[in-house]
Nucleic acid binder design. Structure first.
Lengths: 155, 155
DNA sequence: GACAAAAGTTAGAGGAGGCTAATATTACCA
DNA sequence: TGGTAATATTAGCCTCCTCTAACTTTTGTC
């Protein structure tokens, strides 16, 4: 991947990926609308992304992601999904809150934390949780817990 | 609380709280050093914080937090601790990574998510987790899981 | 108590992001 | 095909945060 984008540019990449969808293209106006940002701000952002070779951009034309851009978008969207699931399913937050929190946190965590969260969710999905089981959670069982979590890790 | 600080100003508040410690005072140079930032940047930040009545600041003097500032610092530090614990104890991340991730994420989550995370950690601490128990985690037990977590919630 | 060192501030500049108003380009339709 | 509506860009401005270089104040030592 490239040089580590700002939160703002990651948001643009994410929005473009979602708007482009299967068609693969979108327009500046749609980006501006969904991001609640002015059109000139979009122009500036697109230039920044184009200079990093993350979008195909020519003035007065439609926008699409490059291969690199798609990779980056996928990484950001993955973080978003994982976080949203965690906030919603595990912490029990409202869907809307979970989503908006994910939107902010996705720019703040790296791949390792994300991978570990995936691992953790996989664990909870497959093997959970004796709320009723009455296990005491001392420092030893904490270590066991970790080992169990790792067994369920994949992508 | 006041008007919602930027991540940057929250970092300053946090650093001041930690440096001031029990003495209650610290100096601009120490802030600059621990935050790896220039002294003029500290001056600017202190003026911004003083204008929001979060620090007691007079040129060429020491710095301390106001009552409001202390409240805000406590809120940020609480988020930091909770997140760091979660990344480290639950996700199994290295202490250093857990801490640096907490440093970023603390500015991105609100009180509700934080409260829910506290609840969740309390639950894990007290009642966990039958990795060995063999409970299946279907959509029904997910709801039960949530109910159990809530029983352990407090501050 | 004077003077050097340490600490702090001012001045000036730059990057990142955002906005509005004005201008340019494209697209569509009669 | 010409003209208007829609779309996009440019120009100019602002805020936030950071920096270096230069200057001022405070402190501590002889």
């Amino acid at each position: 991947m490239s040089e580590k984008l700002s939160a703002s540019l990651e948001d643009y990449i994410e929005a473009i990926a979602e708007l482009a969808g299967s068609v693969g293209e979108t327009r500046a106006a749609d980006i501006a609308d969904t991001m609640a940002v002015s059109r000139p701000s979009v122009t500036v952002a697109l230039r920044a992304l184009a200079s990093r070779k993350l979008v195909n951009y020519r003035p007065y034309s439609t926008v699409s992601l490059t291969v690199e851009g798609k990779k980056l978008a996928a990484a950001v969207l993955r973080k978003h999904r994982i976080l949203s699931r965690f906030f919603c399913e595990i912490l029990g937050a409202d869907e809307k809150l979970a989503d908006s929190a994910a939107c902010k946190v996705e720019h703040a965590i790296g791949e390792e934390i994300t991978d570990r969260l995936v691992e953790f969710l996989a664990f909870i999905d497959n093997c959970p949780l004796a709320a009723r089981g009455g296990f005491q959670y001392d420092s030893e069982s904490r270590i066991e817990f970790r080992e169990e979590v790792e067994k369920y890790g994949k992508n």
